[in-house]
Design a protein around this nucleic acid. Sequence first.
DNA 1: GTAACTGCAAACGCTTTGCACTCCC
DNA 2: GGGAGTGCAAAGCGTTTGCAGTTAC
Lengths: 145, 145
Amino acid sequence: MKELMDDQELFALFRKNGYKVTTQRLAIYKFILPRGDHPSAEQIYQGLKNDYPTISLGTIYKTLHLLKKIGLIQELGLNEGSVRYEPDMEVHINLVCTQCGKIHDYKPENIENIWHNLISKLNFKPTGQRIDIYYECAACKIKES
Amino acid sequence: MKELMDDQELFALFRKNGYKVTTQRLAIYKFILPRGDHPSAEQIYQGLKNDYPTISLGTIYKTLHLLKKIGLIQELGLNEGSVRYEPDMEVHINLVCTQCGKIHDYKPENIENIWHNLISKLNFKPTGQRIDIYYECAACKIKES
DNA sequence: GTAACTGCAAACGCTTTGCACTCCC
DNA sequence: GGGAGTGCAAAGCGTTTGCAGTTAC
């Protein structure tokens, strides 16, 4: 549960992997963490530049790669241009609106068990997974009619 | 089952959607269809330019979008640069090697039933889905050691 | 003090776009 | 014949890279 990680653990995780703790890295991770909407790099930049006026997109990209490497976030490539980032590394479903691109997480009951059953026949250990469902969200349906 | 669609059905599907049947469109679709490796636009281009020396990447992209629109293929955005294309629209798992990018399809027994159970609580109808498992394939493991 | 990190700007690579020519129907 | 499709080249845009100045430790 990433939500329960305190600053000490976070700092330790950075350092264990040979990375320094910097204001920018903390700001980026803490920006993504509570958001349920899987922001893009650009959205993170827009969201942070008020509080951190000199932060740059380059730093955001570098930090996102670093966070991915130490297992804190996941990248979702979505074939509509930009990549989206999310902090939930557990098994869950991404509900993706094909019109507006909004993403919400969804965890049906027992998804952990169902998932582990489904992949029990594999003869290797997955390093991660991703489950998407595509649909048209209510707001987009209204807009069209 | 796309594999069973004959040329007549394919032509009809194009025309029903208001698109003309062209040599290039057929060549592109028939190139992707039997391949299990989910080629990128560039790979399709490389694979076709011997038989169709004047075919262009622009046409390939336009055709891929068209094929997606009429439901013949799916796009897989994979956050390592290019988008990959696959003709299997049924529920299945993509086994993605995180090192070399190779993708294989995997259909555990009963995946259709398991999937439909899993999403039975949704109050909308999905237009599609995508399930990925990330791992390191045998060939890449050997290369590393 | 020094190696790692940041910010900026330029470079990159995949994809899209515009337009004259060509081909399907 | 006419409008849709192709091929080419240029433009677009998200992302990466290089480097001088700055910061964590």
